[in-house]
């Protein structure tokens, strides 16, 4: 495989004489290009494959230090909820999930993670920041409940921020501290990280519930209860 072959054929024919282009060269050109593409595709598939979670288990979706949780944090039955405060289905699920936690108490642990759909819901991210800030004052779940309960009041409104502050006042929160925290890097990063973890877990709609790392779609409250009971039984 050296270039002398080509030089020799140069001398025998006119340079650039297309008709004398050897079939071999043409085949080689196309074949090697095809090979390069195949190699690239294979390589990318490998890289993409190694990053996606295959097995679904608690280990792939564990509770993290910064999660807001309810229930028994040492439980082997882990329920993670990715939710958007401005999404109507999420508001509906919020009360259902709360019921489940009440019913199963110490046997399970629930974590709430933000997944605000910024493009569809204009106040969703702000709501997330407010609940985080309320959480810094020890009232995450209270704020979470109020915001979901009153969703119709503030959804798509321009004065959502004022409404959130009113809710905060009713919860006896320090409004000045709240306003400071809303703008903090820390809270923005927390919401961002929640969102990113959702993307990693293939969340593409809200609410998405994970039970021990596996997506579940309970069709009714009874169904939900059964799924959880089973998980408790198995763990």
């Amino acid at each position: 495989m050296n270039e002398n072959n080509f030089d020799n054929s140069d001398k025998k024919t006119k340079i650039g004489d297309k008709k004398d282009r050897s079939i071999f060269n043409r085949i080689f050109l196309w074949l090697s290009s095809f090979l390069i593409i195949i190699l690239a595709v294979w390589g990318i598939l490998k890289i993409a494959g190694s990053l996606s979670p295959n097995n679904e288990s608690i280990e792939n979706l564990p509770i993290l230090e910064q999660d807001w949780i309810k229930g028994n944090k040492n439980s082997r039955v882990v329920l993670i909820e990715y939710s958007d405060f401005e999404c109507p289905a999420c508001a509906m699920y919020a009360s259902i999930v709360n019921q489940i936690v009440k019913e199963f108490g110490d046997k399970i642990v629930l974590a709430y993670r933000h997944f605000p759909l910024k493009d569809k819901h204009k106040n969703a991210e702000l709501a997330a920041y407010f609940t985080e800030a309320a959480g810094r004052q020890g009232k995450f779940w209270e704020m979470h409940d109020v915001i979901f309960e009153k969703q119709a009041e503030w959804a798509e409104k321009n004065n959502a921020e004022d409404l959130f502050i009113e809710y905060a006042k009713k919860l006896s929160l320090d409004v000045n501290l709240l306003n400071k925290d809303i703008d903090s890097e820390e809270i923005k990063n927390k919401v961002d990280n929640d969102f990113k973890s959702g993307i990693s877990a293939k969340v593409n709609y809200t609410p998405t519930l994970f039970l021990n790392g596996k997506k579940i779609s309970p069709e009714s409250y009874e169904d939900f209860k059964n799924i959880i009971s089973q998980a408790i039984g198995n763990n």
Binding site: I37, I44, A48, S52, S200
Partner: peptide, 16 residues
């Protein structure tokens, strides 16, 4: 192509 194909795959995978 490599860059775009990678992004296409990840889009369908849903992974970050």
């Amino acid at each position: 192509f490599i860059d775009s194909f990678y992004l296409t795959l990840e889009h369908y995978n849903g992974t970050a």
